[in-house]
Amino acid sequence: MNKKLLLGLFLVFGLIAGQSYASEPDSDAFDQTRENSVLESYNRAMFGFNNYFYHYLLMPVARGYRYVTTPSVRRSVRNSLDNIREPISTGNFLLQGNLKESGITLARFAINSTLGLFGLFDVAEGWGLKKKTTGFDETFAKWCIPDGPYLVLPFIGSATPRSTVGMGLGFVFDPVYWGTRHDANVSDKATYAYAALQAITIMEANMDFLNDLERNSVDYYTAVRSAYLQNRKNMGCRSSEDVVNATASYDFDFDIE
C-alpha cells in the first residue's frame, strides 16, 4: 500500500465523516436524500398533483390503449419508438468512450429502420445485436457529474437536476424534433403526438407495478423517491461494466446496531 493511496483513503473517510457530522442529528444512514424541508413540501405537492393526473387521465388512456391493442402490437409500437431514439444512444455511447456499444446501436438503427420496417420489428436482436440504451443523463453520470437532490417535475415525475438537463438535451437531439424543426407547424404537432404516445406506452407498461406499490405503501412518495434514487446509482461514475451491485456501498451499515 503506498502513501498516496493511504492519504486518499483518509481523505475519503474524512469526507464521509464530515458529511455525517453535517447532516441532521436524526437523519438515517440509509436516507440517500439531501432534500431540505422546503424542497420536500414542493415535491410532495407536485407528486400529489402528478398522481391525480396519472389516475384520472393518463391511466384511463393507457388502459384504453391496452384494451384495443394486442401485446405484439404494443411491442411493435415500443420497438419503433425505441428505434427513433437509437441514434441518441449511439452518440452517448461514443461520449462515454464505449465504441463497441456505439457501433452496435448504430448497426441496430440501420438494420431495424430498413429490414425492420421503420423499427416495427427488432430484427437486429435476432442477429445477436441486443438492445442497450443510454442517454445524456448516463453520460453525465459516467463523467462523475453530481446528481443533485430529488425533484418532482410537473407531469413527468421523478427527476434530479442532472436527469432534467439530460432529458432536455435528449429532447433537442431527438430525431423527431430536429427532423421536423424547419416547419414550426409540423414540428409542434409531431412533437406533441410523439410525447403523448411515449407517455401512454410508458404508463401502460408500468401502471400495474405503480398501482401495486401505491396500494402497499404507507408513504408512497418516499417509496418512489427511495427506489428512484437507488436505481440511479446503477449508472455509477465508473466504467460501464463493473457496476454490478451499487447497494453494496451501503454495506457497512447493514448490521443491526
Binding site: Q32, S217, D219, A227, Q230, N234, T247, Y250
Partner: peptide, 25 residues
C-alpha cells in the same frame, strides 16, 4: 435471505426509508 435487490433497488432499504419517514410524520 435478508434482502433482495432488484435493478439496484433494495427492498429493505426502500422499506426502511418509507417506514422511518412515515413514523417521523
Amino acid at each position: 435471505i435478508v434482502d433482495i435487490i432488484i435493478e439496484n433497488v433494495s427492498l429493505a432499504i426502500t422499506a426502511r426509508n418509507e417506514y422511518t419517514a412515515f413514523i417521523k410524520q
